[in-house]
Nucleic acid binder design. Sequence first.
DNA 1: AAGTGGTCTAGACCACGAT
DNA 2: TCGTGGTCTAGACCACTTT
Lengths: 231, 231
Amino acid sequence: MKTRSDKPVYLQVEENLRSDILSGKYKKGDYIPAEAQLCKEYDVTRATVRNALTRLINDGLITSVKGKGYYVTLNKIKYSVWNFSGFTDMVLAKGRTPKSKVLVHEVVQIEDEEYLCIKRARCIAEEENGALTIDTSFLPLKIFNGIENYDFENESLYRVIKEDYEIVPYEVEFSLKPIVGNQDTDEYFVSEGNMFLYLEGVVYDKDRNELEIVKVIYSELIDFKIVSSVI
Amino acid sequence: MKTRSDKPVYLQVEENLRSDILSGKYKKGDYIPAEAQLCKEYDVTRATVRNALTRLINDGLITSVKGKGYYVTLNKIKYSVWNFSGFTDMVLAKGRTPKSKVLVHEVVQIEDEEYLCIKRARCIAEEENGALTIDTSFLPLKIFNGIENYDFENESLYRVIKEDYEIVPYEVEFSLKPIVGNQDTDEYFVSEGNMFLYLEGVVYDKDRNELEIVKVIYSELIDFKIVSSVI
DNA sequence: AAGTGGTCTAGACCACGAT
DNA sequence: TCGTGGTCTAGACCACTTT
C-alpha cells in the first residue's frame, strides 16, 4: 500500500490491529485475521506482518497458537477512575466543584521537542480534605500551539484540548506503581500514610500520535477502581 | 552449523549470548559482536540472528543503537500485566512456564458462607527471581462444590473453573492501592523496597453472581499496565 | 488436503555513526 | 567511505490444527 506516511509499514499494521482490538472490533478470545490474510490486505510480506504481530504479542494484546492463529488476550476496560474526560468531569459528575492549584506552568524541552509542563494539585471546592491528586501533564507545543497562554487554574485542560484544539484523545497506556510521598504530597495531601499510587502514561490520538504524557499521584482519598470484562 | 540438537538455531544463538552476558564475558556497557559477525559465526542469515537479538532486547539484557551495535544493559526482566489478565496467560504469552506454591488451602466461613481459600506464591519456572505475585482467592463452595479437593500446585485454577465446573467469568471489578510488605512478601519476593501494588477485587459471572474474591500483591518485577480506548 | 503459525534462506536499500 | 542496525522482499520447508 505504501501511503504518503514515512512510518514503517509494520508500525502501521500494528497500530491498525491495536485500534481494532481496543475499539472492540476483535474481542477477547476472537481470532484476528491470519498472517496470509494480513499480507494480502496490506500488500506486504510475512516478515513485515510478523514484526507487527510480535510486537502485539509482547504487549500482551494477542497470543499465537500454532496451526490456529492469533487470538486476542486483552481484557476490555469498561470503567475506570481515570475516566478520560479528566478530573473535571469526574468531580462534576458527583455534583461537586473541581478546583485546581497550578504548581508549575512552564515550557520545557525534552529530546528536541518543546512541551508545556503543567503540574496541578486538584481538589474539590466543597471539601476541606486537601488535594485528591497531583497531576503533571506534558503537552507537545507542535500539536498544541499556543496552549502555554491558557490559565489552567480556571480552565479544564481537556475542554481546551477537545473544544479549542478539536483534538480527540483516542487511546491511553498507563503503568501503575506505589511510591513514597514527596514535598508535594506532604504539602497538598491530608494523609496519614506516606505511600501513594502513582500513574504514568501516554495519551494517543487515533493515528497513535502522542498527545500528552501524564503523571498522577493519587491520594488515599481516591478509590482507584477499575471494571473490566474477562471474556 | 546445525548441531544434533533439534532446537531452533535462533534459540541456540540466544542462549549462547545469554550465557556470555550472564557469565560476564560481555560486561555492562560492552558491545556484543555485530549481526554480520554473528551470522558468520553461526553460519545463519540475519533474520535468524535478529530473532535471537530481539528476544534478548525484550528480556532487558541488551539494547540496540542504530549505526553502532548492541550493548549490554542487564536490566532486570520485567513482566507486564495488562488490564489484569491472569498470571497464567501472562507467563504463557512470554513462552515461559507458570509455577505456583500453595501457601494456604483451607475452607473458611465468611458471613454464613463457606469458601475455599487458596493463597499461592506464583513464579516462573525458568527464572530464579522469586515470586512475582502472591494471590489469595476465595471461592464459594455453594458454586464450586468439591473444589477443595483439587491440588492447585499442579492445576490451573482458571482451567478447573472453566472446564470442570463449566463456569465462565464475565467481569471483574477491582481496586488498586499501595501496601507495605508483610511476612509473605519478605519470604517470597526478591525485593529491594518494601512497598507493593495491591489489588483487591471480585470476579462475577454474566448474572452478576460472585464467583471469586481475589487479592493480589504484585512484586516490583511486575509492570502493571493499563491500555484502553478513550471512547 | 488445506490452512495456520514457526523457522530459515538470500538477498535488497536505507539512515546513522565512526573514520 | 564503510560498518552498523532498521526495514522489507520473495521465496522455502516444517509441524500443527481443522475439515
